[in-house]
Design a protein around this nucleic acid. Structure first.
Lengths: 166, 166
DNA sequence: TTTGAAATAAATGCTAG
DNA sequence: CTAGCATTTATTTCAAA
């Protein structure tokens, strides 16, 4: 569920029609919509709707449905982006560090990027002190890490996504 | 559903016990788990489980449930991080640009950060050409934007999150 | 592919421990 | 806060177009 290319799941990428796009938009908005409510919203029969949704899940277009939590309520009110730059770009070093970063406690997302940085780590922590500890104990301990740069996240907002192109 | 502080929803942050944390972890993993399956997984009666989940939703700890899509299958196989730096940090300028960035077609997430950059925009686009167009037409057209820097995203991986601290 | 209707399964409300 | 049972609601299946 991570690579940018979409060739692993079941066969069909298939052509998505307006009904499919409406279903996808509705489920991105509310992943727990009942099939009945979804069918009413997109204007097809319940059985048709269920059929479409199954196809979208099987083909991997719907990659998953996940609860989104209030991290502050869970005691992690501080978020940060940690830019990680490597000293060596040996393939095995990169892959190995990637695995380590994903396993960092509080890691939300880890992006492997090209450009000035190598990895962008989005984390949520209990306090600024924990953020410092996290970096010192889970990131800069690896010799392959040349430097890190940390930015405090003031606010996160969802973008409009890819389903409403214009 | 965006601010880092968690004070807007219903009253209770409340103390979360092991059952709550197990429920949350399960729903982050699969937001469409039936109540029956969830109850079995965390080891409580179905009625108890439903009660807990309702409380977690009302209190805002569960902020939402959303489908995650395969952006490649939707014709947006290229992802990038666009770092945006402003020339003026007038409050109204910042807020206004934030609104604009959230509305950019293909915008996945927009982070308002402190440090070298002001905003980090995570986007998914159809092609490198579209990425250039997006930046020129939706970002650098605003006078308040001093400069942008774009990093191609090779891969995105989910981190372990905040529910498994050690 | 789509549909309606029957059969199965699940969620909700109520009662009580 | 928890559990069990009855009621209401939702999902799945299937024959048919």
């Amino acid at each position: 569920m991570s690579d940018l290319s979409s060739k692993k799941p079941q066969p069909a990428p298939a052509a998505l029609d307006g009904t499919d796009l409406a279903i996808l938009a509705a489920l991105v908005d509310d992943g727990r919509l009942t099939n009945a409510a979804l069918a009413a919203r997109v204007g097809v029969a319940e059985s048709t709707c269920a059929y479409r949704v199954r196809a979208l899940r099987r083909s991997g277009v719907i990659a998953g449905v996940h609860a989104r939590l209030d991290l502050g309520a869970l005691g992690h009110p501080i978020q940060a982006i940690v830019k990680v730059r490597l000293g060596s770009h040996n393939r095995e070093h990169v892959r190995s560090l990637y695995d380590k970063l994903v396993a960092v406690p509080g890691a939300l997302t880890v992006l492997h990027v090209g450009g000035d940085d190598d990895f962008l780590l989005h984390v949520a922590v209990e306090s600024p002190q924990k953020l410092r500890d996290l970096i010192l104990e889970h990131i800069t301990i690896y010799p392959v890490v040349q430097r890190t740069e940390t930015q405090l996240v003031f606010e996160v907002r969802e973008g409009r996504g890819v389903l409403r192109p214009r």
